[in-house]
Design a protein around this nucleic acid. Structure first.
Lengths: 200, 200
DNA sequence: GTCTATAATAGGATAGAC
DNA sequence: GTCTATCCTATTATAGAC
């Protein structure tokens, strides 16, 4: 690189979002900070504030990108799973585990309460599309009512999210920690779920 | 109260642990700080350090108490569930959801990686007893092998933890947020789990 | 056993130079 | 569009008074 080392980026905004994913995946939302993202990109701690007015606006952009990418990952997994609606829903659970492990941006990040006050139309659209995708997958199974559909979806999400967070927090560390193994178990557990008459 | 208002506590150590639970339940591990616990008890920020050498030792004591109480809650729930091993295991999932909602100290707090370096024999014993309880509940069901037992336990924990964290992070806020409802759903979902031949 | 006071560190955010 | 410099706030942890 012949140029001097001032002014590092062509697209710092995009780089900030990408680096935020890395930071979230490595250290979780607990230790996420704007300053740490800036350090990682070797820009000053003030630089991010040229692109996002505050921390929550950066996180909102991360949320939007995560919703968009998770939506795509779930659709791809469902597609690959074939035609059986139950298989497609279970496959989505596996996609969720993989996505959270890779990006650190699961549903609690995507739908974080602190982002509600941020005006961000892109995020709103992507999160709504994601929810629609998930509800459609659940609705395609043989559920008797919309209420049952929601319950089945919640249970599937709970299974996937439970496996994902326990894995990323090292709870399964003793044994086999591979993402593939954990994702497969989440798929298998999601497969056994049924909307039962008692589940109301 | 006739006495002057200096020197607030007879048993600050116990009060610190109790207040830590409240703080965890209200704000999560993300915002846990020794200073906040001290503020809550209206003692100086230095006072906790007379009882715990550092933050992790306080968290270790919280972990020990949580492991002990969760163990008791799970045993009580299993007892109340009757004799069917599958029912007893499912009931444990419900107890877990209630416990985490009430205390904020779930398995990721109890088994937090940062506590591994803390020498705390009481914690070690309580966490081991908890693990034994959970494994026993899973082993009593009709699993073909120890491996199946572990898989069933992991799946049950994942379901319970997923419901608990999504609930405490407000993901279910739109609809019915009562703990009873969420716990009942976790029990129902856990009931449907089976160690399947594919789950390996 | 708890207090006040303080040091060290880190993060969020802003002002103004270039 | 990014930098340096700075302010404010919060947290961990320690020293020494009472």
């Amino acid at each position: 690189m012949g140029a001097n080392r001032a002014y590092h980026h062509g697209d710092l905004r995009a780089a900030l979002i990408a680096a935020s994913f890395d930071l979230l995946a490595e250290q979780g939302l607990q230790r996420f900070s704007v300053a740490a993202v800036a350090r990682r990109l070797e820009v000053s701690s003030a630089a991010p504030y040229r692109h996002f007015p505050d921390r929550n606006h950066l996180l909102s952009a991360v949320s939007a990108a995560a919703a968009r990418d998770l939506n795509a990952a779930i659709l791809a997994a469902a597609e690959a799973a074939g035609d059986d609606p139950a298989e497609r829903l279970a496959a989505a659970a596996g996609a969720y585990v993989r996505f959270v492990t890779r990006t650190g941006a699961g549903l609690p990040v995507i739908y974080a309460a602190e982002l509600y006050e941020v005006a961000d139309e892109a995020r709103r659209e992507h999160t709504r599309a994601l929810m629609t995708t998930m509800l459609d997958l659940a609705a395609a199974t043989e559920t008797a009512s919309y209420h049952d559909t929601v319950l089945l979806l919640e249970a599937s999400i709970a299974v996937a999210h439970g496996y994902a967070t326990l894995h990323s927090q090292g709870f399964f560390a003793r044994n086999d920690t591979s993402v593939d193994t954990i994702a497969a178990r989440a798929v298998e557990a999601a497969r056994t779920l049924h909307p039962s008459p008692r589940m109301r």
